[in-house]
């Protein structure tokens, strides 16, 4: 036989079906909003990583020099703090790339030997900002035998300021969404509990303890939170599918990510139901009078 509080918690669904549905809907809406925000943030992070990696490429063009010097410069570049990866592009390789890009007929116009050897450096994500990059670039430029250092300053500045703006907007929207969700859930649960004031009052009248009164509501809240998170997961899945149909570039989350996301969202749903109902009953118990 089920414990009384669980039986009552389940029965709450039948008895107060409207407020149950309302509380579950509110929590579902809240979880969808928060989940959507998390997904958008994750996608935006992917895009910004990608953008930053494009921007965080620095190319050191070398003067005409011996292979040993070039190799030592390459080693030096690779071990410079802030450098994630370095690639040596010899004159021959540069010519090959040139040919690939412009086709065989390029040979007709250029002999290709004018292309210098270079070191292409990929900067660590932490260093991809205007300040660190210009310090790094200045250092590279100060080396002997380095002719020119090239990176996309204008693009970096633009990307940086845009990312800052976007994340600021994102954080504000996120905070607003979270606040709205908590408000919505708290009020709906409070109303749901208010709808059962007669039952609570009767329990107090016959001498039920506050802890006992609270329990079925918490059980019900957790069940509602759990259901809400399942509903929210389905909705989010549909939304993501629809979004991917429109924007095929979006990356679907890999399975481990999906699992973590689902577990976190379900946990949040249960916690939301728990805390929402516990605080609402607690407040109510403090103020209710028997008559």
């Amino acid at each position: 036989m089920l414990p009384y509080s669980i039986k009552e918690g389940l029965a709450g669904f039948r008895r107060a079906s409207f407020s149950s549905v309302a509380a579950t809907s509110a929590m579902t809406a809240a979880l969808v909003m928060v989940g959507l925000f998390a997904i958008v943030t994750w996608q935006a992070r992917g895009i910004s990583e990608w953008l930053k990696q494009r921007v965080g490429e620095v190319e050191l063009f070398l003067e005409d020099t011996s292979d040993t010097v070039a190799v030592s410069l390459f080693e030096r570049a690779r071990s410079t703090p802030g450098v994630a990866q370095a690639e040596f592009i010899s004159k021959e390789r540069a010519q090959e790339i040139f040919r690939q890009e412009f086709g065989e007929e390029a040979d007709i116009f250029f002999d290709g030997t004018f292309l210098p050897a270079s070191i292409r450096v990929r900067v660590e994500p932490d260093y991809i900002n205007a300040d660190s990059l210009s310090v790094l670039v200045a250092e590279f430029a100060s080396w002997n035998r380095v002719d020119e250092v090239v990176f996309n300053q204008a693009l970096l500045t633009k990307v940086e300021s845009n990312l800052r703006l976007i994340s600021l907007i994102g954080i504000s929207i996120g905070a607003l969404v979270l606040l709205a969700s908590v408000f919505l859930v708290a009020n709906t649960i409070r109303l749901a509990i208010y709808a059962r004031r007669l039952m609570i009052r009767t329990m107090k009248l016959v001498g039920a303890t506050d802890g006992f009164i609270r329990k079925p509501f918490i059980v019900e809240g957790v069940i509602q939170g759990f259901l809400s998170s399942i509903l929210a997961l389905f909705l989010l899945w549909f939304i993501q599918r629809a979004a991917m149909a429109y924007v095929p570039q979006l990356e679907p989350l890999a399975l481990p990510g999906v699992l973590v996301f689902s577990v976190v969202l379900t946990g949040s749903g249960c916690a939301l139901g728990w805390m929402g109902s516990a605080s609402a009953v607690g407040r109510f118990l403090k103020h209710i009078s028997l008559h």
């Binding site: 007669l198 009052r201 009767t202 107090k204 009248l205 016959v206 001498g207 506050d210």
Partner: peptide
């Protein structure tokens, strides 16, 4: 609550 268990309370409106 334990005091209330030793009391039987009856109001005008039946509740």
């Amino acid at each position: 609550p334990f005091l209330r268990r030793s009391l039987g309370i009856v109001f005008q409106d039946f509740q």
